[in-house]
Design a protein around this nucleic acid. Structure first.
Lengths: 208, 208
DNA sequence: TGTACATCAGTGAACGCGCGTTCACTGATGTAC
DNA sequence: TGTACATCAGTGAACGCGCGTTCACTGATGTAC
């Protein structure tokens, strides 16, 4: 059997995860820069001092949340961008996956939207770095397209950033639509699809 | 002479403005949900209780800052979108105006980017409402274009939102580039210009 | 397997501090006559 | 213009409270022999 964690390590990971989960819950109604260490431990049911066994500060916990939030998003994007027959199908799948992701991990998505430009520098940097990695991956997939003939590296990077930003805007729109009607969600789906298509049309006629 | 304010009113406005300015300064390194009333009054040099003569809470002050920040942005956009000969010139002017605006009101721009998805609901709503008004105005200008023949209301609204979101992304990129090199600013200028052009190309070939 | 010692995740008391809010106040400005 | 009263922006003391951090601790788990 492969290296099994001891009881102590398993319990420690559980507490750590409980702190992350509790923090994410509390962050639905405030930002990280006002999140208190005592709030988090109170929500979990451990002593305030236990916090220090896992994180140096709430900023440090925030950086850990970034990893968790974008780690779960990473495989999704790559799969969607890679496996599609034509442009319209790729767009439809991407929009659907964003909608599903927002439904499945709403708190993570909210956290990212909120802290991307939030008041805690190390967290902003962690998000920026992860988004740059996304753009790199999208760029790599775009480069495989036959439509990318004649596009140099900076062209593709620009286009990749445009798609990544557009995905974030779409996620943000779905977040806003979460607690309203189904019609509103449909409206967002159509709007996002059309905006992506418009970028796609621009791509095909670029310098052409 | 038109209705002159008394000495008392003038002084009150000065104190109010000093509170807004001090808050904006403090918000460069934190978000509104962690901004303390005492911090703000301390920075201005008045007693903490003086705060209540002007605002009910820091959230209330935040809403006032939204008005101030987007009020100064409103005339700029309209003028730029309205007075341009061709698409490329319009884009070049818009990008230049965004760059200038970020240079002139960096703290306001940072505040908007940070609080748009921030932890204070009334402030989020105020920003969302103002951005919707922007999109309406951009839509009205787009409708005047000859290129808008055959576009219905929802088409134009989608396009207007796409442009407004793109302007915010561009402002955000200029913010990030502010404290780095001039070459970085030029890179952002070129990137933003190309992204806008791509949307513009997409627009011309939409359903065409 | 059993024993003796080391490790370390979580505890709980204690600290000094800044917070938001209340209240009665002061004194310059505004107003009525 | 002068006087007597009203208004109200800003004051300063006081309050109870939750905060982040320190410290010595406990006792279950891990390890060496």
């Amino acid at each position: 059997m492969s290296h099994t964690l001891g009881i102590r390590q398993v319990q420690k990971q559980k507490t750590r995860q409980a702190l992350l989960d509790a923090a994410l819950g509390l962050l639905e109604e405030q930002s990280l820069s006002s999140l208190g260490l005592r709030e988090v431990t109170r929500a979990v049911g451990v002593a305030p001092t236990a916090f220090y066994r896992h994180f140096r500060s709430t900023a440090d916990l925030g950086v850990a949340l970034v990893e968790e939030a974008l780690g779960s998003l990473h495989p999704m994007i790559r799969q969607t961008v890679a496996t599609a027959e034509d442009s319209d199908q790729r767009i439809a799948r991407a929009v659907q996956l964003i909608a599903d992701h927002v439904d499945t991990y709403p708190a993570h998505v909210r956290f990212l939207a909120r802290e991307r430009h939030g008041g805690v520098q190390p967290v902003r940097e962690a998000i920026r770095d992860q988004l740059a990695r996304f753009a790199e991956e999208v760029k790599a997939e775009l480069a495989k397209d036959p439509e990318s003939g004649g596009w140099d590296d900076s062209d593709l990077m620009m286009l990749a950033h445009l798609y990544v930003d557009q995905m974030l805007i779409t996620a943000s729109l779905f977040m806003e639509a979460r607690e309203t009607s189904d019609e509103e969600r449909d409206r967002v789906t159509r709007l996002a699809t059309r905006q992506m298509r418009l970028i796609s049309v621009g791509r095909r006629h670029w310098l052409g």
